[in-house]
Amino acid sequence: MSQPAQNAVDISTLSVQQLSALQARLTQELEHLSTSYQRLRAAQLRFRDCIRSIQQGIQGKSGETPLLIPLTTSLYVPGTLATPADSSSSSTVLVDVGTGFFVEKTPEDGIKFYTGKVDELAKNLLEIEKAVGGKNDNLRIVEDVLRQKMLAEQQAGGSASKQQRAQASVG
């Protein structure tokens, strides 16, 4: 969404007001990016959990291996893996591919699917990281210029009021 600035503007020519508006916007964008980053991180972790669940709970397990199935987060019931009668292969898993669709897959395919998702997210995470770095640099520069401007203004204002006071004392 954030496009690189096409027409470069020398930020030292901007007024203090414009600079602080720019600063606020950059901060907001940065916040947005970091929440997105965290969310992607959480999603990636969830997919990794799915892979682990397949690897540890299903792959290579026969129908007799007892399992504890969570009904809620604190209630478990014992059960065994069902092996579909019509398929000669081992049990399949249902994978949520998004928008309410679930696809029956072999455990291997399931792992492949989730690995693909994790890799995709890793790519996105890298991109966001880059964007955050760029925005951070921009923000720092803007803050620097803003501070300089404020200082300059303060000094100018300070000397002006001193002059006034000097005049007042003379008068």
Binding site: L94, V97, G98, G100, F101, F102, V103, E104, K105, F113
Partner: peptide, 14 residues
């Protein structure tokens, strides 16, 4: 994802 699926793959809708 659908493109890479076999035609007889089990697809379920929630």
């Amino acid at each position: 994802e659908f493109v890479s699926l076999a035609d007889d793959a089990g697809i379920y809708k929630l």
